[in-house]
Structures are given as C-alpha cells and as structure tokens.
C-alpha cells in the first residue's frame, strides 16, 4: 500500500546518516549521535513488544545489560573475539527471555509490568553483586574495541557508521515483521487477546516469540554499547534505564517504527540541551515530557501527523 513511501523514508534516512557521518567531525556530536542510535535500537526493540503486541516490560534494561556483560566477560576475561561474542551475547539474552517469558507472559497489564520490573531488578542485582564475574558495583574495565578483519571500530566515525547501519537493518527487519502475517497477529493481540485466539492466533507462542526477539535486539544494543565505551557498570542497566526506554517509546509514539527514532533522539538530546538550565534541568525535562503527553498523547510521530491533518482540513474549508 504505502510501500513506496516506506522506501522513500528509508532512502532519506540513509542519506541523512551518510551526510551526517561524512560532514560531522566533532567527536562530541558523533558520540551523541551514536548514543541516539543505541537508544533507537532499545526503543525499537521495546516498541515491538509494547507498541505492537501491547505487552508492557519494565525490565528491558536487563537484556541491554545482559548483552553488554556477556560480551565484556567473554572478550576480556576469556579473550574471545568480539565477533564470536556477539552471537553469545544476543543468544544469552534471548534464552533468558524465553525462560522468563514462559511464566511472566501469562500475566497481563499491571501484573506483567510488576513481573518484568522484578526481573529487571534481579538482573541488576546480579550485575552488582556477582563481583568475581562482573566486577561488581565498581564496574567492568578494559573491554576491547570491536575489530572486524583489518577494520578497528575505535574512532567516532567508524562506530557511527557501524551503529547506524545496524539501526537501519533493524528498522527494515521490524517493518517487515509488522507488515506481515506475524505483525498483524501481534497487533491483533494488542486490540483483543480473546478475539485474536478466536481467529486462530496462538497468542502465548507469539507473545513469547516477540519477547525473545525484543530481548535479542536490546542485547545487540548492549553489545555495541560495551565495545563503544570499554567500561560498563550496573547503574547503566538499572530500573531507571528501563523506565527511560519505556519513556522513549511512549514519547516517540507507540506502534510506530519511526517513533522509536524520534523518542530516542529527543530523550538523548534533551539532557544535553537542558544543561543551560543548570539546577532546573530536571524540572524542565519533566515539564517537556509532560507537555508532550498532554498535547500529543499519541506520541510525537502520530501527534505531528494529527496536527498536520487538522491544519489541512481547516484550510480545505
């Protein structure tokens, strides 16, 4: 239907990434854009679960952390090549999601929220307390940079292109799932689980599948994060981090692929812009998030489209 519009959007997006990566030399800005990319991955992964399938997760940072810690331990403690650690990191998160998902996804609504919240806290405590393996509260130091063949992904530019290529691939992957039979079934669960089952959707299996997929993507972001900063600590993967991912999804727009990008960008950039307010930073931050929700309750993407529609209608008259 809007296949063409989709392709144009991808092309514009790819062009923007190439132009930015090519033109921007300032390390600070590059770093900032890399973080937007990582956050986009996280928001996208949670959006598949929350926005499309309607299953809330308040513990998503746990999978982000598992991705980061597994690669950190493998590449540093056991000297495994990062490229081999990648499937292990993503696979571990997916396996954990599978085991956690079987009992947890029987819950729904607030209870699922509480269940995933508890899971996130447990994982965070494991990162902090299992010192011999994870370095404990003081963190894990000395993670090697990513190397693929002769290319070392150490400089800002290299990493920028790596992260954004991954983002692009994941965007396309999610778009394809959403537009398929599986995606429709996912959205049907969101609209009514009872009716979804009554038309033949195996809701339990599908929810588990999307949870596992979502965990895998979050772990991929964690892997990229670990090899970007070389140092990880439990604080990055705490409850607050989980809430931040949820906020990105809600602010950007639930059930919107591009919403993940918008939400991640806003939540990454806002704190940087708000430094000017010094001690009032958090107050202004909160006010902005509140106003977005009050005036654009369906999130930025839908909200902007709604405003545009209204504008067009008022001009037609």
């Amino acid at each position: 239907m809007n296949d063409k519009a989709n392709k144009i959007a991808y092309a514009v997006f790819a062009l923007a990434v190439i132009l930015l990566g090519w033109q921007v030399d300032n390390e600070y800005y590059l770093q900032l854009m890399i973080f937007i990319g990582l956050n986009t991955l996280l928001a996208l992964s949670l959006n598949m679960l929350m926005g499309y399938a309607g299953q809330i997760s308040l513990g998503h940072a746990a999978f982000y952390g598992i991705g980061a810690y597994v690669t950190a331990i493998l590449t540093t403690t056991y000297q495994v090549a990062p490229l081999l650690a990648l499937p292990a990191a993503v696979g571990t998160a997916m396996l954990v999601a599978w085991f956690v998902g079987i009992p947890t996804l029987r819950l729904s609504g607030y209870y699922l929220g509480m269940g995933t919240l508890g899971f996130g806290m447990i994982v965070h405590i494991v990162f902090r307390e299992w010192s011999s393996l994870t370095g404990g509260a003081s963190g894990f130091v000395g993670i090697p940079p990513l190397e693929i063949g002769p290319v070392v992904f150490a400089s800002g530019k290299n990493y920028f292109f790596l992260v954004w290529s991954v983002v692009m691939l994941c965007l396309i992957m999610c778009r394809r799932i959403i537009d398929s039979r599986v995606g429709r079934a996912l959205r049907s669960i969101h609209d009514g689980e009872k009716a979804a089952a009554a038309v033949g959707v195996d809701t339990k299996k599908l929810k588990l599948q999307v949870f596992v997929l979502s965990a895998g993507m979050a772990a991929l972001a964690g892997f990229l994060y670990a090899h970007l900063v070389y140092f990880i600590s439990p604080g990055t993967f705490s409850f607050v981090a989980s809430i931040r991912i949820v906020t990105m999804v809600v602010i950007g727009g639930m059930a919107s692929i591009w919403g993940a990008l918008l939400g991640a960008s806003l939540l990454t950039l806002l704190p940087e812009w708000l430094h000017a307010f010094s001690e009032f930073e958090m107050v202004v931050y909160g006010l902005i998030l509140m106003s977005v929700m009050i005036f654009l309750p369906r999130g930025l993407t839908r909200g902007v489209l709604d405003v545009y529609e209204r504008y067009r209608k008022s001009h037609e008259r």
Binding site: A185, S188, D191, G192, K194, V199, G200, A255
Partner: peptide
C-alpha cells in the same frame, strides 16, 4: 470483537491466520 485499530482488510487477513504459514523469520 473486531481489532479496532486495524483496517477492515487487516481484520480479514488476521482471520486467514490459520490458513497461512509465514513465520517471523520468513517475514
């Protein structure tokens, strides 16, 4: 109990779920 955020066509397509096979990786 229609899927109200989906189009009429999409509702029927979900109805075809058991008669189609495409899985997540296929998609």
């Amino acid at each position: 109990e229609l899927f109200e955020n989906m189009t009429v066509l999409e509702n029927i397509l979900v109805g075809l779920h058991t008669r189609t096979r495409c899985g997540m990786i296929d998609s």
